[in-house]
Structures are given as structure tokens and as C-alpha cells.
Design a protein around this nucleic acid. Structure first.
Lengths: 137, 137
DNA sequence: GCTTGCTCCTCAAGTCGCTTGAGCATGTAG
DNA sequence: CTACATGCTCAAGCGACTTGAGGAGCAAGC
């Protein structure tokens, strides 16, 4: 057999931890792997590609349900790339919204810490409003 | 009694769901609330302020353990504002790191979707590399 | 007084996406 | 032949809640 990849090797090639690969199989993201005589999982290149794709989608914070839909759609061939693109576009919006939240948070934290640093530059000072500002914000 | 706030009212004033307030009490973030004759929780203004503060810290993605330390430190008065500032500064770094990740993701998604849109502008096209790009990335 | 409907209570279990651990079998290198 | 790494299964744990069941209390209108 040209391809006889163990789960550890699959983990190395895909970047997914071993336990995570087993978990993906358990929840149906991966079809049940073939087994060796001793009952060990044996993977092939298509499994590795699928894993790499799943992992890539997961690092984009795409939920497992959406990942499952996507990889299944791809498996059925055809117009999958448009589905992928639509998902990517929808996700892009979510990413931008989250980034805007983080920007706002950055500004808030910067302002709060600057206020405290100014009021307490010679040690804690009763005039420091950082806690009250946090409550009021 | 000037203050006799029900849990529903506390939820409205703090922005925390009712179930979350009970959960915070259960895990020790809030001291156990006083009870009415019928066994219902009765809150006062200090509880509401504490809740607002907790909620504010949580929207900053600060873990419950860190929140607990902070609100306890504040309860003990004194130099709490420096603790808060240090936490805020540490957290600011985490926020910026996460934002950088999202920026990278934004660029990736933008590039991928643009490629697909160009290749598939007249319908799905076999030359579209979005899926292969995802696997390879 | 009575009914309606909202709010409140407790306790248990479910969510998501894994991770960790126990306890055992198998494969590989020296 | 002996280590030791790697594999297996099953079960539980994580954070931070959320949801659901099953019941009691309370305020308002009739």
C-alpha cells in the first residue's frame, strides 16, 4: 500500500492533535477511518486533506456544524466553491464586527489606564476614577 | 426599605440575565443575596454596582477567576486601582494580539473570496482555486 | 374570592469544542 | 528481551453559561 498513515502521522501532517482527530471521527466530521489488523486507524491522503481543510476552517472560528456542511458539500463536488465563498463572505462580516468590538475595547482600556496612571503616578490616589469609570461604562 | 430589588429588576439594571446572576452567586462572584420571607432574592444598590462591574469586565473577555480576584480586591479597598490598571494593561495586550489575528484572517478571506469571484464570475468554474487554497493555506 | 399570567424558586442536564486521564494493547529500537 | 512510544476505548472535565422541568408566589382584574 502506498498510503498507510497512522493517526500520529496524520496529526503531524494536518496540525490537528491526535485526540482531536478521533473526536472529529466520533462527531461525524471525518468518515470512520479504515483499521489495521490490530484495530489501529489507517488514513490516506484524502483524509489528510480533509483534516487540513477542517483545521483551516476552524482557525477561522467557523463552528463545527458549518464546517460539516461545507466539507460535505465539497465532497459532493460541483458548485461547492460558491458555497465556500458565500460562507467566507458571511464570516468576513463576523470577523470585522468582532474586530470593531476589539477596537472599541482597546480605546476604552487605553483611556482607563491612562487616567489611572495620571492620577496615581505617585502611588494609589483617592482621586483615581478607574473603578468608578468601569462601573459606569 | 428604600432598596428592595428583585432579581428581574437587578437583571434589567445590570444587563445580566437572571440565570446568570444566580450562577454568579452560585460560583461565589456575588455574596449570597438576602432573601424575602418567601425565599426570594433581594438585592441592594451595591449588588447592582458589583454586577455592572462584573458584566463590564466580562464583556472585555476577562475570565471569571480574574474577575473574582479583581472584585474581591476592590472590596478590600485601598490600592485596588493599581491592580485594576495592571490587569487592564495585560488584557490590552491580549486584545491587540487577537485583533492582529483577525486582521490576518480578514486579509486571507478577502483574498480567497476575490479569487473565487474572479474565476467564477460566470458560474462555478473548474479553474477556481478557493478550496485548494484553503487546504494549502 | 378566584383566575390569569408573570416572576420567582431549585435542581439537573445540555451546550461547544475539545482536552485529559485511566487502564490496557501493540509496535519498534537497541 | 526490555523499554518506551504509540495506539486503543471509555469517561469525565473545562469555562461560562443556558435551558428545561416542575413547582410556588404575587399582583391585577373580575
Amino acid at each position: 500500500m502506498a498510503t498507510g498513515i497512522t493517526i500520529g502521522e496524520a496529526a503531524r501532517r494536518s496540525g490537528c492533535p491526535v485526540a482531536t482527530i478521533r473526536y472529529y471521527e466520533e462527531v461525524g466530521l471525518l468518515r470512520p477511518a479504515a483499521r489495521s489488523a490490530a484495530g489501529r486507524r489507517v488514513f490516506g491522503m484524502p483524509d489528510i486533506e480533509r483534516l487540513r481543510l477542517i483545521r483551516r476552517l476552524r482557525t477561522m472560528d467557523i463552528g463545527l456544524d458549518a464546517v460539516r456542511e461545507l466539507v460535505d458539500a465539497m465532497g459532493r463536488g460541483g458548485a461547492a466553491c460558491l458555497d465556500v465563498r458565500d460562507m467566507a463572505l458571511a464570516h468576513l462580516e463576523a470577523v470585522r464586527a468582532r474586530r470593531a468590538e476589539l477596537d472599541a475595547l482597546d480605546r476604552t482600556l487605553t483611556r482607563l489606564t491612562a487616567t489611572c496612571s495620571a492620577a496615581c503616578k505617585d502611588g494609589p490616589d483617592a482621586s483615581c476614577t478607574i473603578i468608578a469609570d468601569l462601573i459606569a461604562a
